[in-house]
Amino acid sequence: DATVGTPSDCKPCPCPEGATCAVVPKTREVVCTSCPTGTTGKRCELCDDGYFGDPLGEDGPVRACRACKCNDNIDPNAVGNCDRETGQCLKCIYNTDGFFCDRCKEGFYGNALATNPADKCKPCSCSPYGTVDRQTSCLQVTGQCQCLPHVTNRDCSACEPGFYNLQSGKGCQRCDCNPIGSTN
């Protein structure tokens, strides 16, 4: 406040070099108004949307603001793609998930880091009859669903040779064919 008439009326802005500041009239709060590129916040302590870091090192070493790192599994037209401080990815696409959109989300399998979106994460599509507890999730990489006894295939959709009755939902039963009267 330059109107009080004391030598300490004007104080330097509590902002990084080059930034200007302003006083919010009601609260008397000082805010920086032209933070360095990529930064924002009351004291330029935050990263702009789409970037993450800790530009003033308020929570450890200084980390300059960098673009969200989400393995190309975010959409550049979206807003709020990652947490501004930690970089945790918040809007993974192509059925990916994880801190860096680096794995397939629940119920999908494959390689989240594949270059072609079509090769990334595919649905598990576990057979409800052949899968333990009718689970819908499968192993991350191979996509193997957890099969009931004597059930086979990635998606638990068939009985092992010599077994039948997948539809029972309790696993497949031995055929018990008489070896004398059967062809194989």
């Binding site: 302003a22 919010v24 108004t33």
Partner: peptide, 22 residues
């Protein structure tokens, strides 16, 4: 520092959002 957050004067205006500000 200059207190440059003032009541918006009468008249028609454009309002837009940018990085922690309107």
């Amino acid at each position: 520092p200059r207190p440059d957050v003032q009541p918006v004067p009468p008249g028609t205006h454009l309002l837009f959002a940018q990085s922690g500000k309107i």
